Simulated scan of single mutants.
Amino acid sequence: MPNHTYKMTELVGSSPTGIEDAINNAVDKASHSVHNMRWFEMTEVRGHIDAGKVAHWQVTVKVGFTLND
């Protein structure tokens, strides 16, 4: 297995349906411009409350990707 050097970037994703969709939205959008993504770490969860109910989820994720040779 070769040695890897990783770089991390921080993303914020959102979704009206849940945390998992918010993460997937962030990773999917980033995949169009960030290549070689390998892992993520969720660091924050926030939400918007409307009329006493959770209306929207927002998550901050750190995404690690390998650098090109």
Results as ranks from 00 to 15, higher is better:
M1Y: 09
S15H: 12
S31G: 08
H32P: 00
G18L: 08
W39G: 11
Y6E: 00
H32T: 11
T60Y: 05
V61S: 04
T9V: 03
P2R: 10
K7S: 09
E41M: 09
E10P: 00
G18C: 05
F65W: 03
N36C: 07
N24C: 04
P16K: 13
I49C: 09
N36S: 11
G47P: 01
Y6L: 06
P16Q: 14
A22H: 09
M8I: 09
P2K: 12
F65N: 00
N24D: 13
K62G: 04
T60L: 12
G13I: 00
E10D: 11
R46P: 00
V27S: 01
S15K: 11
H48P: 00
H4D: 05
N25Y: 11
N25C: 09
K62R: 13
S33R: 09
T43H: 09
L67N: 06
L11V: 02
V63C: 03
R46S: 14
K7Q: 10
A51T: 01
P2G: 08
A26Q: 08
T5E: 03
V59D: 07
T66V: 10
H32D: 10
L67Q: 12
V59R: 09
L67S: 02
D21T: 08
D28W: 04
T5F: 01
P16D: 13
H48E: 15
H35D: 04
A55N: 07
K7Y: 07
M42K: 11
E44V: 03
V54C: 10
F40M: 07
T9S: 06
V63R: 02
H32A: 15
S31C: 04
M1T: 05
G52L: 08
D21G: 07
H4M: 07
D50T: 13
V12Q: 15
V63A: 02
A26I: 03
K7R: 12
H56G: 05
E44H: 12
Y6P: 00
K62M: 03
G18Q: 02
G64N: 02
L11N: 04
F40H: 12
A22Y: 06
H56I: 02
W39H: 10
S31E: 06
